[in-house]
Amino acid sequence: MALSGIVGMSQTMQDFVQLVRTFSRDYPELNRIVSGEESSDRQIAWAVFDAVSDFNGTPPFTNLFLDDLLQRHQHHLLLRMTIESLIESVGQLQTRNHINYSNGGINVGVNDKTPLLMNWLQYFKAITEQKKMRVKVALNIESILGPSNVGVHSELWAVNATYAAY
């Protein structure tokens, strides 16, 4: 695997990169137009880092790593955020390499997948932004409750707590 030589590349990251590749079905035998894989393992790893950075940089700010998000069962969100980053990257490449050619009344657009990519990007952004906000709210509530999930007692607890024992 191309990621094995990168310092600090965890097995979790390598496994997640393969999960992203499987979800996007980016395999040479399935790519009819693109020769080989459209996104390398390094590009997918970059998109994972970008997705985690986006998650952490969205208020309320967090400092979670890939392992933290996966332990909190956020595979679905992180996978789609990673795909979103890949689509943005591929879309920029497609736009940069787009040319129109006209000869003898025949017009041809080469590599004009940008509108299709934009549709997918809008779809993934809508899903991920909603999910990200729900997770952020849940994390914010969890931070208020504390590690034991007891929360902060109101003044009524101080007045009425002694009656609970009788």
Score class of each variant (00 low, 15 high):
residue 20 V to T: 07
residue 21 R to D: 03
residue 21 R to H: 04
residue 21 R to E: 03
residue 22 T to C: 08
residue 23 F to K: 04
residue 24 S to Y: 04
residue 24 S to P: 00
residue 25 R to A: 08
residue 25 R to M: 14
residue 26 D to W: 03
residue 26 D to L: 07
residue 26 D to I: 01
residue 27 Y to R: 14
residue 28 P to E: 05
residue 30 L to G: 08
residue 30 L to Y: 12
residue 32 R to C: 14
residue 32 R to T: 14
residue 33 I to R: 10
residue 33 I to L: 10
residue 33 I to Q: 06
residue 34 V to A: 11
residue 35 S to E: 07
residue 36 G to K: 02
residue 36 G to V: 01
residue 37 E to A: 12
residue 37 E to Y: 08
residue 38 E to Q: 12
residue 38 E to C: 10
residue 38 E to K: 02
residue 42 R to I: 09
residue 43 Q to A: 06
residue 43 Q to Y: 00
residue 44 I to K: 00
residue 44 I to M: 07
residue 45 A to I: 01
residue 45 A to P: 03
residue 47 A to Y: 01
residue 48 V to F: 01
residue 48 V to D: 00
residue 49 F to N: 05
residue 50 D to P: 02
residue 51 A to V: 00
residue 53 S to M: 11
residue 53 S to Q: 10
residue 55 F to L: 07
residue 57 G to Y: 10
residue 57 G to D: 06
residue 57 G to F: 09
residue 58 T to Y: 15
residue 59 P to F: 06
residue 59 P to Q: 06
residue 59 P to C: 04
residue 59 P to E: 10
residue 60 P to G: 05
residue 61 F to M: 04
residue 61 F to P: 00
residue 62 T to S: 14
residue 63 N to V: 01
residue 64 L to S: 10
residue 64 L to W: 07
residue 65 F to E: 09
residue 66 L to A: 09
residue 68 D to L: 13
residue 69 L to F: 09
residue 70 L to D: 00
residue 72 R to I: 01
residue 72 R to G: 12
residue 73 H to C: 08
residue 75 H to K: 06
residue 76 H to T: 05
residue 77 L to A: 14
residue 79 L to K: 06
residue 79 L to V: 05
residue 79 L to Y: 07
residue 79 L to S: 07
residue 80 R to T: 00
residue 80 R to I: 05
residue 81 M to L: 15
residue 81 M to V: 02
residue 82 T to S: 12
residue 82 T to P: 03
residue 83 I to C: 13
residue 83 I to K: 09
residue 84 E to G: 06
residue 85 S to N: 13
residue 86 L to Y: 00
residue 86 L to H: 09
residue 86 L to S: 05
residue 87 I to F: 11
residue 87 I to S: 11
residue 87 I to A: 13
residue 88 E to A: 15
residue 88 E to F: 09
residue 90 V to D: 11
residue 90 V to N: 13
residue 91 G to I: 03
residue 92 Q to F: 13
residue 92 Q to R: 11
residue 93 L to S: 13
residue 93 L to H: 08
residue 94 Q to G: 07
residue 95 T to M: 15
residue 96 R to N: 14
residue 96 R to W: 15
residue 97 N to G: 13
residue 97 N to M: 12
residue 97 N to T: 09
